[in-house]
Design a binder for these strands. Structure first.
Lengths: 404, 404
DNA sequence: TTATTAAATCAATTCGCTTGACTTATTAGT
DNA sequence: ACTAATAAGTCAAGCGAATTGATTTAATAA
């Protein structure tokens, strides 16, 4: 686990680390607050105006920020606000789902520029990776056609895939993508694209998306429950995604959470609360291309069988929310997913009223303890694309430390 | 919540921040690895030997590290290892429990130098704070008598108290210390002692203690379940204590976790799993000074009533452990507490075998998923004392940032 | 005895933030 | 209309902590 002599120590830092951090907090401040003058940034970050001026000059030279028209706001010289340049950076997101792969390309502010999908062959990753690389090549070509210089500003590629990683399958579970999880995907894609590649589970990706441009924007303590084919959570703690000791944090799909009336042979939570479970109930083929439309129809149509399923899921999620609130004391919890909008909204409705917890306080910000987040088949891919942006530009402890 | 114009931004940093961080990682490295030469430190931290040399010189000047006899280990100039100076710093810990207050004074390496307790008057905090200040004064005097210069090296005072803080009582619960929780305790103690004072819940304090000198030493992802009068967890994530958005993270005592056979009117977890529950069962007065001895006796004596209680508690904790593992993916989980050693050990025994979870992996470090930690009435006070040491000397993100 | 290896230091340099004085542009007050 | 006040932003010198590269010291291997 450690180096030659197994001395454990944390990394030191230097001028460069401090500088890198300061660049990141500038970008973060502009992302969260929209547009700010140099003086605003100096006050907000605690740096001197001179330091801010230098950093902003450099960011402007790098094409990451640009000035707006100056605004008079009272006495004194008018301020020149700066904003992020959307075309300052681009990133690719790739989602590997059970039956389909999706890719998305976003810019620095999270606008989606390209969106493409392909069916995954049944032959597993060895065949699948060819399809994936072809899809990625086509997506890049589409980006180039739209924005000629964008190729030089690609900061990385994020992959989202169901977790957990590096673990022997716990339950003999046809829903797990063991073959993909054991395939050297990151290396293959890195070699095939020449980009920096990182892998995370789909729930973490969704949380990254919520933070970049969803309901978690600007919040530092948020739990995102990702209701997709499986069930997981993305943990944003202290403004950073938390992965745990082995990048498997948040796998609540596997918890054995009893509901009233359950016996001890209860199945893991995601066998109840997931799109997989719903597909089983509705006797739908999960690889069906029109799945979302069909599920949406089913939810709108309703019916006792579906209502009962939703009640059961809501009951379990209500308890899950109470557990998560008690454990994390977050600012808010977001229910998002690779699931149709109507389903997520109905579930949020049904989960309320929430159980009492420490999250019940007089003045809350945000006001709601539980809210609906992004809900469409593309949200994990979007989050995957948000990850390289966050890695390159978001303030984080690891970015301050010296690089190897 | 924010400043005048509600611009939200993170703090910047500068040379001073980098330097402060580097000092901290040196101390951390020496704490975790025992004694290291400058060359070792340079390799381990990624800093240049020259930088390490300067920092170590400064730490030595400040009386925080000292050199040992040089050691020959093969070719080349022999290395001079450096170690922490135990008398380099001192900190006071204060625990406010339901019926008693305890104080502990530790040095930089966590040795306990002073240990005193006093009964809390029934009159509540207004009267109690007088008792507390008197206790603290006596403890300080005892420290001075032992180590004359220690007064100048007191880095702070930590208070541990049952949480949660800043919340309207959820359950009408005689075990909650609402009066103390609403009392301006930090200010009173700060004014009364002239020290930097910080407050945390007892579970967090216990986790801090485990990290400084217990089973979590040198680990960065650990969950400590604190089995005391109530039940809580201290979360060590990325090497730092995580407090959540409002310092109430880890309050698992309040979760509504069903066990097989429970109906929906289950009570919060700590109504089953806590010393309070055990006292009720054994019909013991929790303010009894000999409580620990009596409980120890009872556990050793055994009996069907107690066994049944322990089985029930173990069943619930087994599920709790599985939830915590799934959510946090920690390196290990520690069951510690303000409870007798035998009880904690018996519970760990009974909780095993653990439920399947993502923590089940081929090569684990540490090997055990669940282990017993510090277990005695002083562990929260000890943790409270460890907090100022950690705050002053442990590497953490916030220590890098510019100070207001 | 000499070459090699490793620890540790010396002296000069570098780089990004800070300091304090200054310029510019606007509004408030008389 | 003029002046004072206020705020944004820049200039240039200074500073501090890590880096760089050469050097010294002390051990073992050949």
């Amino acid at each position: 686990m450690d180096g030659t002599r197994s001395i454990r120590a944390k990394s030191g830092t230097n001028l460069g680390g401090a500088s890198a951090h300061n660049r990141r907090i500038m970008i973060d401040a502009l992302r969260v607050n929209g547009a700010l003058s140099r003086a605003d940034l100096a006050r907000a970050t605690g740096l001197t105006p001179q330091a801010v001026s230098n950093i902003i000059d450099e960011l402007a030279r790098d094409g990451l920020v640009r000035s707006q028209a100056s605004v008079r706001k009272g006495r004194g010289q008018p301020a020149t606000p700066y904003q992020l340049v959307p075309e300052g950076a681009f990133a690719i997101g790739l989602q590997i789902d059970r039956h389909v792969t999706r890719t998305v390309i976003v810019n620095l502010v999270g606008d989606v520029l390209v969106q493409m999908e392909a069916k995954l062959p049944a032959g597993g990753p060895a065949e699948g990776v060819v399809v994936v690389l072809d899809l990625l090549a086509r997506a890049r070509k589409a980006l180039m056609a739209q924005i000629p210089g964008a190729g030089d500003r690609l900061v990385g590629l994020g992959i989202a895939m169901p977790g957990p990683f590096g673990i022997n399958t716990l339950y003999d579970d046809p829903w797990m993508m063991t073959a993909w999880q054991n395939f050297p995907l990151v290396d293959s894609i890195a070699k095939g694209t020449g980009l920096e590649v990182a892998l995370q589970n789909d729930a973490s990706a969704a949380a990254t998306a919520e933070r970049l441009l969803g309901a978690a924007h600007g919040l530092d303590h948020v739990i995102c429950i990702y209701f997709g084919y499986g069930l997981g959570t993305g943990l944003i703690l202290n403004g950073e995604l938390y992965g745990g000791a082995h990048s498997n944090a948040g796998e609540i799909g596997m918890i054995l959470l009893l509901a009233p009336g359950d016996d001890s042979d209860v199945e893991p939570l995601e066998h109840y609360a997931s799109m997989a479970s719903l597909c089983k109930l509705l006797d739908l083929d999960p690889s069906e291309p029109e799945l979302f439309a069909m599920v949406t129809d089913a939810v709108l149509r309703g019916g006792p069988k579906l209502e009962q399923w939703m009640d059961n899921v809501a009951e379990r999620l209500r308890r899950t929310v109470q557990v998560l609130e008690s454990i994390f004391d977050p600012q808010t919890i977001i229910l998002c997913g690779g699931a149709p909008r109507v389903l997520i909204d109905r579930l949020v409705e049904k989960i309320e009223p929430l159980l009492p917890s420490i999250a019940e306080r007089a003045r809350r910000y945000p006001e709601r303890r539980l809210q609906a987040g992004l809900a469409d088949p593309w949200s994990a891919a979007l989050g995957a694309a948000a990850e390289p942006i966050a890695r390159a530009f978001d303030p984080r402890f690891s970015a301050i430390l010296k690089t190897a």
